[in-house]
Protein backbone atom coordinates (compact mmCIF):
# COMPACT_ATOMS: atom_id res chain seq x y z
CA UNK A 1 0.00 0.00 0.00
CA UNK A 2 1.43 3.41 -0.96
CA UNK A 3 2.12 5.76 1.90
CA UNK A 4 1.17 9.35 2.65
CA UNK A 5 1.54 11.63 -0.32
CA UNK A 6 1.77 15.39 -0.18
CA UNK A 7 -0.41 16.97 -2.89
CA UNK A 8 1.22 20.30 -2.10
CA UNK A 9 2.80 21.84 0.96
CA UNK A 10 -0.52 22.12 2.79
CA UNK A 11 -2.54 19.12 1.61
CA UNK A 12 -1.97 15.47 2.31
CA UNK A 13 -3.41 12.45 0.50
CA UNK A 14 -3.76 9.33 2.63
CA UNK A 15 -4.81 5.89 1.33
CA UNK A 16 -7.21 3.97 3.56
CA UNK A 17 -7.97 0.27 3.28
CA UNK A 18 -8.52 -2.88 5.30
CA UNK A 19 -5.72 -3.12 7.84
CA UNK A 20 -4.72 0.44 7.08
CA UNK A 21 -6.87 2.74 9.15
CA UNK A 22 -5.90 6.18 10.37
CA UNK A 23 -6.80 8.64 13.10
CA UNK A 24 -7.07 12.30 12.14
CA UNK A 25 -7.85 15.65 13.69
CA UNK A 26 -11.61 16.03 13.76
CA UNK A 27 -12.87 18.10 10.84
CA UNK A 28 -9.59 18.01 8.94
CA UNK A 29 -10.99 15.97 6.03
CA UNK A 30 -11.12 18.02 2.82
CA UNK A 31 -12.24 15.41 0.27
CA UNK A 32 -12.34 11.66 -0.20
CA UNK A 33 -13.09 8.95 -2.73
CA UNK A 34 -14.52 5.52 -2.08
CA UNK A 35 -16.55 4.18 0.83
CA UNK A 36 -14.83 5.81 3.77
CA UNK A 37 -16.38 6.46 7.19
CA UNK A 38 -15.41 9.01 9.80
CA UNK A 39 -16.24 8.25 13.40
CA UNK A 40 -15.49 10.51 16.31
CA UNK A 41 -13.09 8.75 18.60
CA UNK A 42 -12.65 9.62 22.23
CA UNK A 43 -9.75 7.29 22.79
CA UNK A 44 -7.67 8.02 19.66
CA UNK A 45 -6.40 4.45 19.72
CA UNK A 46 -5.09 4.63 23.25
CA UNK A 47 -7.60 2.44 25.04
CA UNK A 48 -9.69 3.50 28.00
CA UNK A 49 -6.77 4.11 30.34
CA UNK A 50 -5.08 6.33 27.82
CA UNK A 51 -8.28 8.25 27.19
CA UNK A 52 -8.71 8.83 30.89
CA UNK A 53 -5.13 10.02 31.13
CA UNK A 54 -5.66 12.38 28.26
CA UNK A 55 -8.87 13.77 29.70
CA UNK A 56 -7.13 14.48 32.98
CA UNK A 57 -4.18 15.94 31.15
CA UNK A 58 -6.23 18.29 29.01
CA UNK A 59 -4.15 16.94 26.14
CA UNK A 60 -7.20 16.09 24.10
CA UNK A 61 -7.35 17.25 20.62
CA UNK A 62 -10.54 15.77 19.19
CA UNK A 63 -9.67 12.95 16.84
CA UNK A 64 -11.70 10.80 14.46
CA UNK A 65 -11.26 7.25 13.25
CA UNK A 66 -11.08 6.97 9.47
CA UNK A 67 -11.71 3.57 7.86
CA UNK A 68 -13.05 2.02 4.69
CA UNK A 69 -11.54 1.75 1.25
CA UNK A 70 -10.33 4.78 -0.65
CA UNK A 71 -8.23 7.92 -0.47
CA UNK A 72 -8.72 10.87 1.83
CA UNK A 73 -7.34 14.39 1.54
CA UNK A 74 -6.45 16.15 4.78
CA UNK A 75 -5.56 19.76 5.56
CA UNK A 76 -6.11 22.23 8.37
CA UNK A 77 -6.17 26.00 8.61
CA UNK A 78 -3.83 26.57 5.67
CA UNK A 79 -0.94 25.25 7.73
CA UNK A 80 1.99 23.36 6.28
CA UNK A 81 1.96 19.58 6.60
CA UNK A 82 5.09 17.51 7.14
CA UNK A 83 5.12 13.71 6.94
CA UNK A 84 7.23 11.85 9.47
CA UNK A 85 7.82 8.12 8.99
CA UNK A 86 8.52 6.02 12.06
CA UNK A 87 10.33 2.73 11.63
CA UNK A 88 9.83 1.41 15.13
CA UNK A 89 13.23 2.46 16.37
CA UNK A 90 12.36 5.74 18.03
CA UNK A 91 9.51 7.64 19.58
CA UNK A 92 8.12 10.90 18.27
CA UNK A 93 7.14 13.54 20.82
CA UNK A 94 4.60 16.05 19.55
CA UNK A 95 1.92 18.34 20.87
CA UNK A 96 -1.57 16.95 20.26
CA UNK A 97 -2.70 20.14 18.53
CA UNK A 98 -0.05 19.70 15.86
CA UNK A 99 -0.99 16.13 14.97
CA UNK A 100 -3.05 16.17 11.75
CA UNK A 101 -3.22 12.47 10.98
CA UNK A 102 -1.48 9.26 12.06
CA UNK A 103 -1.67 5.56 11.26
CA UNK A 104 -3.85 3.47 13.57
CA UNK A 105 -0.92 1.05 13.72
CA UNK A 106 1.10 3.54 15.75
CA UNK A 107 1.00 3.35 19.52
CA UNK A 108 -0.21 6.63 20.96
CA UNK A 109 0.64 7.64 24.47
CA UNK A 110 0.61 10.63 26.73
CA UNK A 111 3.79 11.56 28.49
CA UNK A 112 3.78 13.49 31.72
CA UNK A 113 6.33 16.28 31.52
CA UNK A 114 7.43 15.44 35.05
CA UNK A 115 8.77 12.11 33.77
CA UNK A 116 11.47 14.04 32.04
CA UNK A 117 13.01 16.40 34.48
CA UNK A 118 10.67 16.21 37.49
CA UNK A 119 9.40 19.52 38.78
CA UNK A 120 11.58 21.37 36.30
CA UNK A 121 9.81 19.48 33.53
CA UNK A 122 6.45 20.62 34.83
CA UNK A 123 7.66 24.19 35.05
CA UNK A 124 8.95 23.87 31.53
CA UNK A 125 5.56 22.71 30.26
CA UNK A 126 3.82 25.60 31.97
CA UNK A 127 6.26 28.26 30.79
CA UNK A 128 6.43 27.12 27.18
CA UNK A 129 2.69 26.72 26.85
CA UNK A 130 3.13 23.05 26.07
CA UNK A 131 1.11 22.05 29.07
CA UNK A 132 2.03 19.31 31.47
CA UNK A 133 1.59 16.53 28.97
CA UNK A 134 2.81 15.79 25.51
CA UNK A 135 1.74 13.11 23.01
CA UNK A 136 4.06 10.28 22.02
CA UNK A 137 3.89 8.10 18.92
CA UNK A 138 5.84 4.88 18.48
CA UNK A 139 5.88 1.78 16.30
CA UNK A 140 5.77 1.38 12.55
CA UNK A 141 3.84 3.91 10.51
CA UNK A 142 3.52 7.50 9.34
CA UNK A 143 2.05 10.68 10.69
CA UNK A 144 1.39 14.20 9.41
CA UNK A 145 2.41 17.23 11.50
CA UNK A 146 1.07 20.78 11.24
CA UNK A 147 3.32 23.82 11.27
CA UNK A 148 3.15 27.48 10.37
CA UNK A 149 5.48 28.04 7.43
CA UNK A 150 6.95 24.55 7.15
CA UNK A 151 9.52 22.83 9.30
CA UNK A 152 13.27 22.49 9.31
CA UNK A 153 14.92 19.34 10.64
CA UNK A 154 17.86 19.96 12.91
CA UNK A 155 20.00 16.97 13.89
CA UNK A 156 20.92 16.63 17.54
CA UNK A 157 24.18 14.89 18.39
CA UNK A 158 25.78 14.32 21.79
CA UNK A 159 28.49 16.87 20.91
CA UNK A 160 26.05 19.47 19.66
CA UNK A 161 22.96 20.19 21.70
CA UNK A 162 20.34 22.33 19.97
CA UNK A 163 18.45 25.22 21.58
CA UNK A 164 14.96 25.95 20.31
CA UNK A 165 12.50 28.78 20.91
CA UNK A 166 9.53 27.06 22.65
CA UNK A 167 7.09 28.82 20.31
CA UNK A 168 8.91 27.54 17.22
CA UNK A 169 9.26 23.96 18.51
CA UNK A 170 7.08 21.45 16.64
CA UNK A 171 8.24 17.93 17.57
CA UNK A 172 11.28 15.82 18.25
CA UNK A 173 12.33 12.18 17.97
CA UNK A 174 15.13 9.94 19.17
CA UNK A 175 16.99 9.56 22.43
CA UNK A 176 16.68 13.15 23.42
CA UNK A 177 16.62 14.79 26.78
CA UNK A 178 15.07 18.22 26.98
CA UNK A 179 15.24 20.86 29.61
CA UNK A 180 14.36 24.49 29.90
CA UNK A 181 17.30 26.85 29.63
CA UNK A 182 16.60 30.16 31.28
CA UNK A 183 18.64 33.19 30.44
CA UNK A 184 16.32 35.78 31.87
CA UNK A 185 18.06 38.77 33.34
CA UNK A 186 17.10 42.06 34.92
CA UNK A 187 16.22 43.42 31.51
CA UNK A 188 13.51 40.78 31.03
CA UNK A 189 11.94 41.60 34.38
CA UNK A 190 11.51 45.23 33.45
CA UNK A 191 10.13 44.37 30.02
CA UNK A 192 13.20 45.24 28.06
CA UNK A 193 14.36 41.73 27.25
CA UNK A 194 15.54 40.33 23.95
CA UNK A 195 12.47 38.10 23.75
CA UNK A 196 14.67 35.03 24.06
CA UNK A 197 14.58 34.44 27.79
CA UNK A 198 13.50 30.79 27.59
CA UNK A 199 14.84 28.10 25.31
CA UNK A 200 14.35 24.36 25.11
CA UNK A 201 17.71 22.66 25.30
CA UNK A 202 17.66 19.33 23.45
CA UNK A 203 20.62 17.01 23.94
CA UNK A 204 21.34 13.41 23.07
CA UNK A 205 20.92 12.00 19.59
CA UNK A 206 17.89 12.54 17.40
CA UNK A 207 16.11 15.13 15.32
CA UNK A 208 14.11 18.22 16.26
CA UNK A 209 11.52 19.81 13.96
CA UNK A 210 11.42 23.61 14.08
CA UNK A 211 8.96 25.90 12.28
CA UNK A 212 9.83 29.24 10.69
CA UNK A 213 7.46 31.16 12.92
CA UNK A 214 6.69 31.87 16.55
CA UNK A 215 3.00 31.18 16.14
CA UNK A 216 1.40 28.44 18.23
CA UNK A 217 -1.54 26.48 16.89
Amino acid sequence: MPGYQGINAKMLQVPVGPGHEVFSKRGAMLAYTGPVTFEPSATAGQGLGGALGRAVAGERSAMMHVRGQGTVLFGHGGLHVTVVDLSGADTLYVEADRLLVHDASLQVGTMFMGEQGGVRGMVRGAVTGQGLFTTTLSGHGSCGLLSHGGVMELPITPQRPVFVDPQAYVAHRGQVENRLAVSAGMRDLIGRGSGEAFQLQLSGSGVVYVQASERKI
Binding site: L154, V162, A168, R192, Q211
Partner: peptide, 11 residues
Amino acid sequence: VAYEGQMTFKR
Protein backbone atom coordinates in the same frame (compact mmCIF):
# COMPACT_ATOMS: atom_id res chain seq x y z
CA VAL B 1 13.83 29.97 16.45
CA ALA B 2 16.80 27.71 17.19
CA TYR B 3 20.57 27.72 17.67
CA GLU B 4 23.56 25.43 18.06
CA GLY B 5 26.64 26.35 20.06
CA GLN B 6 27.03 29.23 22.48
CA MET B 7 24.91 32.31 21.93
CA THR B 8 23.97 35.31 23.97
CA PHE B 9 21.00 37.52 23.18
CA LYS B 10 20.89 41.09 24.37
CA ARG B 11 18.30 43.67 23.59
